[in-house]
Design a protein around this nucleic acid. Sequence first.
DNA 1: CTGAAAGCGCTAACAA
DNA 2: TTGTTAGCGCTTTCAG
Lengths: 328, 328
Amino acid sequence: MPTIYDVAREAGVSAATVSRVLNGATTVDPAMVARVLTAVRELGYRPNAVARNLRRSRTTLWAVIISDIGNPFFTAMVRGIEDVAQREGYSVVLCNSDEDPVKEETYVAAALSEQMAGVIISSSGSVKAAKTLTGSPVPVVAVDRELPRAVVDTVVVDNEAGARTATEHLLAAGYRRVACITGPEGVSTADLRLRGYTEAMRSSAPAEPVIVRTDFREQGGYDAMASLLSSPEPPDAVFVANNLMTVGALRCLAEREVAVPGRMGLVGFDEIPWADLVHPSLTTVTQPTYELGRTAARLLVDRIATPAAKPARIVLSAELHPRRSSSR
Amino acid sequence: MPTIYDVAREAGVSAATVSRVLNGATTVDPAMVARVLTAVRELGYRPNAVARNLRRSRTTLWAVIISDIGNPFFTAMVRGIEDVAQREGYSVVLCNSDEDPVKEETYVAAALSEQMAGVIISSSGSVKAAKTLTGSPVPVVAVDRELPRAVVDTVVVDNEAGARTATEHLLAAGYRRVACITGPEGVSTADLRLRGYTEAMRSSAPAEPVIVRTDFREQGGYDAMASLLSSPEPPDAVFVANNLMTVGALRCLAEREVAVPGRMGLVGFDEIPWADLVHPSLTTVTQPTYELGRTAARLLVDRIATPAAKPARIVLSAELHPRRSSSR
DNA sequence: CTGAAAGCGCTAACAA
DNA sequence: TTGTTAGCGCTTTCAG
């Protein structure tokens, strides 16, 4: 691979001039610019970004740490991040922590080592990872999930309100024994959606809350629904706190031929791809997913520009989309 | 941020010794190892990977260039890649070209500039990007889609056979006017799946092939199906060459209340998440998606180890999963 | 087993 | 406007 010195020699100028040309300095003689560009083309020169990053002591990479790359919610969010990143000249390194705090810590360490320009994280709950981030000078934005015990730029949806609305919707439809399947303790979305459910139940429900905690995966939702069905007094409706678990729950009901919405009402949080094409179509609490990502990215851009600014906190709203699965 | 010299001073040793300790050299006095590790902890030292990469003139990053991060097929494949990468000590930089050759070229250029250790690419068809890659010393593996006009390590499924099987399946079920919706010209999966369809039609079909080309997106499938439906003699079945387009086609049929499989049979290539839960359940040609990624990653590991080896070509097989949408 | 010193490729003061 | 020079932080010979 040719270096900047090879180009300089070929063009008969100094390395500094080549650097200037390549970085768009306006203070270069047009004749030299032409010579340099010719040399670059002839040698097939490609600047070494590693060297540049070291010299400038900054990179143009963002680490985006999400907890499940297989979840369309996260990929949609990443698209929002990417679009902003690209426009601002950054590249996105996507890190999939797989809901594993240890993997999350590893990725955080790598992001710092690699001198990433910023980190956008949807925490899988590791306090250690959060501490490492806040203890470093790297700009951080929490998205979708709060960063545990940390005050950083944050963009989330109003999980509590969304969950409350979903639960009230089921109660209003005439369901009485409404249960909740939610995610792991310590993950803010799991906890807040559970809280929204509990509030709705406390204030107006004819039955006690029934709660099952599991992971945020499809299999988790399946298992949770199975255990609810085998309980002495099964619920007649379930609010499920994320998309993949909702699909798992639906699959469980389909296999056991439990009529939805007849014998069991179902509402899920998060949009589900082709929720309208599954049978029955799924009532969901939809988030502005792409917007979530875009907003987070913008906060990161701002944070990089003004590191000392007061951390922002943006709450977007979630919206109920009633479909068949909850209409008694 | 403390540097290796700060640690050296704190521990009363040289920077070289710190480096040795941190890189696991066995030729260091245990007493010094202890002093160094203490100093590292006290200062919260974190090695600067950019400097290390420059010095070693290599990185531990892989660029994985895919054409649609919103397509669950690709994310499943990426998981396979990631799992191998992580085990081998690499991190994955996911690049989403969005089926845009220009974006693809940009990412390829970035991967080379950043001195990535390797590239795994599912080409969106850019010959220029392919040329740039093969003209550089970076190890490259093509996955899912061939790299145009290039001989590199490749892992694909048998697209032609899969498409032929799918088409024959529709014909055997009694459909007669079978059409095909496929992707952009120049993308190997689009072209090969089309060829498989055409072969099946030529050899045994009672009607002429009908072909619609569009992009590989959901909307493309929707539009293609709409145009087929409005033609003078609409088909009675369609083979759709990828998952998202299949969903789009199904949505179009659902909106227009065309009975599937009664008035229209449907088979899609690629697995579709919860294909069994949509209505009607979708017949698909399923690929070993995760395996595809894992295999590609292994090829890359081998290629990095022995750059001069003869390029490998691995063809996995795709399998028909008959469900409701094709059963007349 | 340890340290001194060179240099990876680039950019940014500073001189000219 | 251009060139010279000094590092960015690390690893790796080469001496000792």
